[in-house]
Design a protein around this nucleic acid. Structure first.
Lengths: 195, 195
DNA sequence: TGTATTTCTTGTCCTAGTTCAATGTTTTGG
DNA sequence: CCAAAACATTGAACTAGGACAAGAAATACA
């Protein structure tokens, strides 16, 4: 199976592209294997990549000045990860980290290669806008859940949404994603197990 | 002052457009005045507009099946409001409402007019992609704050970010936006006032 | 202008979730 | 294969914030 088949299928989901256009896309991507527990973006650094996950799992997280760590995203197969917060609140840099949790196979855009893609095949602007739209909708949904739901409901919804992750990543990462303590998640799971 | 000056300035912030292109943009927009307390999008409805606020204030909120109401966004001057959640979780329609809180002057896209814009002037794809990018960054930042910060810190940050809103909207709306109860926000404010 | 409605405050009691600490379990890597 | 480290569980004490209720203040509107 070809290295680009997943990304081509993923990007074709909402916009149809010719083989020629897909070739341009593929030519702008760099394939990279990254071993697990590699920090790809350190705090304070500017994120100069956008990665599509062919295989593996990545977490993106913030740490604030009080040491609060929150996982903002798990990126698994067929999803994208990057940091876009750099330019928003210039005064207080958002201490974002991006770290592989498993050995990963990635396809990587640099800012330049993405621009070059848009230049050579402008219809990709549209596809990436739609992807972004969906990303925003998911984030809003998650914000709502975080505010309105109990820990139990949040965890059940998480299982629904990412059924494979509890087998793949440490439980305290899931707790951090859900915005609850690792201990309390453990108690929630105990309660679920009893029924 | 021209009805379109604000939107033209706003859209030109990250991409430079010719007057001709801006004219195309403006020709696709419908100007509409909407009185306060008008619900522009009811639960279950599909959102068929995207509105730029020239003047006024709008809230967008969810209500879940347990009656939890959460304000997802305040849209004030020079910002956009729309609902994009329709297509994400098709099975459980997201009960989103969009309501004016003040008398509003708006510029409105229908899905068709936006498509027409992109057809006539494709470079707007880019500008709207960048706007979306920023929107996503703001939403992620807010998710982080919601999870990691105390009610007090969230309110102080809110004041910083939306200094005019406490004078413009009811306090319990702000509480709902912050994910805390109206009563507790009142206590937080009392504590701030004491120092 | 006065009445009704909405909004805000304050107090009391209560609970979901946190923190800390101790113990057990699993994973890692030499 | 073993030791060290990371991870998970459980319990006890605590706290941020919620729910409810009742009164005060502000707004709307007839």
């Amino acid at each position: 199976m070809d290295r680009y088949s997943q990304i081509n299928e993923s990007i074709s989901r909402y916009v149809t592209f010719s083989q020629e256009e897909l070739d341009i896309l593929n030519s702008q991507l760099e394939y990279r294997e990254v071993p697990k527990k590699t920090i790809m973006l350190h705090e304070g650094e500017m994120c100069n990549f956008e990665a599509f996950v062919i295989k593996g799992c990545i977490r993106k997280y913030y740490i604030d000045s009080n040491g609060h760590e929150v996982i903002l995203q798990f990126a698994i197969e067929n999803s994208w990860v990057s940091d876009i917060s750099f330019s928003i609140y210039e005064d207080r840099p958002s201490h974002t980290f991006i770290e592989t949790l498993e050995d990963c196979e990635l396809l990587i855009f640099s800012p330049e290669s993405k621009e070059e893609l848009f230049k050579q095949a402008p219809r990709f602007e549209r596809a990436f806008r739609i992807l972004l739209y969906r990303n925003l909708a998911v984030t809003q949904d998650r914000l709502f859940n975080t505010i309105a739901k109990t820990a139990m409901d949040k965890y059940l919804e998480f299982l629904d949404h990412y059924p494979s992750l509890p087998q793949r990543v440490a439980q305290h990462y899931i707790a951090s994603y859900l915005g609850i303590s690792a201990e309390f998640l453990s108690k929630v799971r105990a309660k679920i197990a009893k029924n």
